[in-house]
Design a binder for these strands. Structure first.
Ligand SMILES: [Mn+2]
Ligand SMILES: [Mn+2]
Ligand SMILES: [Mn+2]
Ligand SMILES: [Mn+2]
Lengths: 217, 217
DNA sequence: AAAATTTTTTAGATTTATCTAAATCTTTAA
DNA sequence: TTAAAGATTTAGATAAATCTAAAAAATTTT
């Protein structure tokens, strides 16, 4: 199959292409892989040779169907393992990402299906991200970021767009976990911080935090 | 930490040193790693530099305490994951070894302890092999091979000393699974095959199979 | 539209793990 | 106790993934 490195490149390219329209740039990949642009160029040639990406020099890349399928499989595994770690092994949501980064490369189709079954076919991972089914399909959750909401609007927290431990621990401390209902009281013009109501309690959230909270209304 | 390759070398060296007295030979390792003797020599130098083995040119190797500790950790993980796959995900005992070969390299001390807890601190893996505890200790099971038993002796199957799928499937078919009580009726002089009684049923087992069945009396 | 800046690619090394073939050491056997 | 056989190590190459520095292309600014 594909090497760990190839799988990681595919996954990053997939996430970057989800994040915005158009082709994915070399530097964005280098940034995501914590490597240098020159290394990325080398790998892009390799992935292109394997028909996993469409690549034109200087023009960025897109995943082919084959590449997209491979990428989604890795994402599926990553999220299922995160559910396993939280639901079965009692890890906190801020502890599971790094372990799942390793587990996502375990290579056994049967294992993934058995795991999915064992977990009760969960639809979301501990961070609210959708889990692709065995055919690679998942609901396109039309969530909005807290920063896109307006004064007076209310919603329920359904996910986060950052998975770092410090961020998640901070949210936990604020009580802003998945399922929490909130209402926007005020958006501060000066620093973009958001004042909101949560369980009859008024709290203030910095712009940096608000940017990574996902809600449904 | 150590690379996958280093971990695999340590594990092979550990298993080989358990199997017989004295130092472990280069060719034995090459055989276990499915690689060439020259590659083994390269790696032995590296492991020696890291103080994981004691190595004298042409004289074979032994694990240092550090190396042994590392090796036992990998064995612990391998066996715990096998229990997980069989007990929780309903895999058969002949399907789990290869997946565990991958899972054993997942690098998280907490994960191992949580998994052990989740599984109820099992003492044996699905093949009857002892699972080291978190300090690396495990019972030295004084089991004997079926080929070492004598006519009239009886015992209970507690393990196997081969983990290949064809062998385990064959045993399953014969009904010779762990926990089965047997009694030796006859040992055939001509081909070394063993005739035995199992659940009021008389069956014959070839020498090749008998060599890999472990019993306690 | 030319200049400056940014992005991307190439060229040439490096590291890790592997290999084959040849050399060297150890063991076995005559 | 030498010769042959067997095991192990060295020498020199290769493939994968990475790097730095320099060259080339694309984009943005003047
Ligand atoms: Mn994650
Ligand atoms: Mn997640
Ligand atoms: Mn095994
Ligand atoms: Mn086992």
């Amino acid at each position: 199959m594909h090497s760990f490195t190839e799988e990681n490149y595919l996954k990053i390219i997939y996430h970057l292409s989800q994040a915005e329209e158009g082709t994915v740039q070399t530097n964005a990949i280098a940034n995501g892989m914590k490597t240098k642009a020159a290394s990325v160029t080398d790998m892009l040639k390799k992935l292109s040779d394997k028909n996993l990406i469409d690549y034109i020099k200087y023009q960025g890349v897109t995943l082919t169907e084959k590449g997209k399928t491979a990428a989604i499989k890795i994402v599926r595994k990553h999220r299922l393992w995160e559910v396993f770690l939280v639901d079965k092994l009692k890890f906190r949501w801020d502890e599971v990402h790094d372990i799942a980064e390793e587990l996502e490369h375990i290579n056994s189709a049967v294992l993934v299906e058995r795991l999915d079954d064992f977990l009760g076919f969960p639809k979301r991972d501990p961070h609210g991200d959708p889990i692709p089914d065995q055919h690679g399909n998942f609901e396109d959750l039309e969530n909005i970021h807290l920063t896109e909401m307006t004064k007076g609007q209310s919603g329920i927290i359904v996910g986060v767009s950052e998975h770092s431990s410090p961020f998640l621990i901070h949210l936990e401390k604020l009580g802003l976990t998945i399922g929490t209902a909130i209402k926007i009281i005020e958006i501060t013009a000066y620093d973009g911080s958001v004042e909101l109501m949560m369980n009859d309690q008024k709290i203030n959230v910095s712009k940096k935090v608000a940017e990574h909270i996902l809600l449904k209304s």
